[in-house]
Computed example of a mutant assay.
Amino acid sequence: MSLVSSSFPSSSRTLSSYGWDSAWEAEFTRYADQGLVPGRVVRVDRGQCDVMTADGVVRADTAFVTPHDPLRVICTGDWAAVDTDGTPRYVRAYLPRRTAFVRSTSSTRSEGQILAANVDHAIIAVPLSAELDLGRIERFLALAWESGAQPLVVLTKADLVPDQTGLSYLVQDVETTAPGVQVLPVSSATGEGVDVLTAVVSGGTSVLLGTSGAGKSTLANALLGEDVMAVQAVRDVDGKGRHTTTTRNLLALPGGGVLIDTPGLRGVGLWDAGTGVGQVFAEIEELAQDCRFHDCAHLAEPGCAVLAAIEDGSLPERRLDSYRKLLRENQRIVAKTDARLRSEILKDWKRKNAAGRAALKAKRGGRDR
């Protein structure tokens, strides 16, 4: 990915334009005493990063902030302590993160990958040029809630929906999938919804997330008011786009706030996102409180309030299937680094197997095979 222009915003913008406040200043005091300069990381390359300071953008080496833990490496959105004396310049440390958007990598090691730090709003771009993938939206939402940011689902390319009634139905489908989350149809071509989105993102740091072809770069340009992000056409054959954006870039918005644009994500793996999953499926967790058994698995237990909701049509069965799937996936990820949880999963598996064998034996009149 590339920026159409490699220039950064004018250094006349104060750090407060990038989110600097009194709390960050207090955190930075010990580094200021060491003669270090505060700045926000606007882009990270291999071994180096660009940092916006009060005097403009500086290029700094990251040798001091590249630990073995991939979740502790410096990333776009971090507030850095920069040593500007001498050449090269170095990032010596970064301030504790308020929020962090983390996903599981697609590697067999299932490591966590941090995509953005200190984010207030997680904008999930979903294109209306293709059929809605509600399961993928739920995945993005789980990670967004877990990060500590406020999610917002933006339905891009709204101008491609031929009638307002059809658009309203699509919005309702996503609202059912995203309880407690604003769903906003937007068209960069016509300007629909852009003013509302601009008002939302003006109040802090936003990260723009979605798959390739979701219209993220076009949306970023609409918010920036100029063609800063390069845009490529979506393939007609499958509606997918190429990876226009290949790095994460933090950009100051003219109406206030900053935006982190990210590459299109092929995989959206959960990473210790149990709380986020619960938030996405809040209606299921609320129903579960009325189940007869506190450890109800919502499979075939008597007095299950969740299954009763499916029976009366108030809860779509797809939602329960998706809930189970994401819980299992998240449990597997966490178990890889938690020996106690692995032991509990094994015990639960043995218990369920024993119960299944007992039920089968009873069905056969007490005879084993």
Rank of each mutant, 00 (worst) to 15 (best):
Q172T: 11
K350A: 15
A80D: 11
D272P: 12
R103A: 08
D33Q: 06
G257C: 13
R89D: 10
L143Y: 04
E311R: 12
S11W: 09
A309W: 09
G365H: 05
Y94A: 04
G239I: 02
R342H: 08
P151S: 04
L197S: 06
R43Y: 12
G148N: 06
R13N: 14
F28S: 06
D227R: 08
S168I: 05
A308P: 06
G239P: 11
S104V: 10
L143A: 06
A63E: 14
G47A: 01
G19E: 03
Q331S: 12
Y18R: 10
I310Q: 11
A282I: 11
G267F: 14
L259I: 02
H121N: 12
A355L: 15
C304V: 13
W349C: 05
Y18K: 10
W79V: 04
S129I: 10
R292F: 10
G313R: 11
T165W: 02
L143I: 12
I345E: 02
C304P: 01
E285Q: 04
F140G: 07
R332E: 08
Q164K: 01
A288S: 02
R324D: 05
E317R: 10
A93I: 10
F293G: 09
T198R: 04
L265D: 06
V58H: 00
G191I: 04
R98F: 00
G180N: 13
G225Y: 01
A93P: 05
V174Q: 07
D163T: 15
D61T: 08
D272L: 09
V183R: 06
A288T: 03
G56C: 00
S7Q: 03
T84N: 07
L143H: 02
V268A: 14
G39S: 09
A354R: 15
E192M: 15
G135N: 07
A362D: 05
V171A: 11
L341Q: 10
V91L: 12
A144I: 02
R369A: 13
V174Y: 09
V183I: 05
A359I: 00
K336W: 12
I124V: 11
G225F: 03
S104E: 05
I137Y: 07
Y169A: 15
P96L: 09
G215N: 00
V306K: 11
D45L: 14
T84C: 10
R103L: 14
P38F: 04
L170E: 00
Q48Y: 13
A308S: 00
S343F: 11
E311G: 05
K336H: 15
L132S: 13
G56R: 13
R248G: 00
V196P: 12
D338H: 14
D78K: 00
D173L: 04
V183D: 02
I123C: 09
P67F: 08
A149Q: 01
L326Q: 06
R98L: 01
G241F: 01
G274V: 07
A222I: 09
L251W: 12
A252L: 11
G191C: 01
G203A: 09
V306Q: 08
V231L: 02
E311I: 03
R292A: 03
D163K: 03
A297F: 15
P38Q: 13
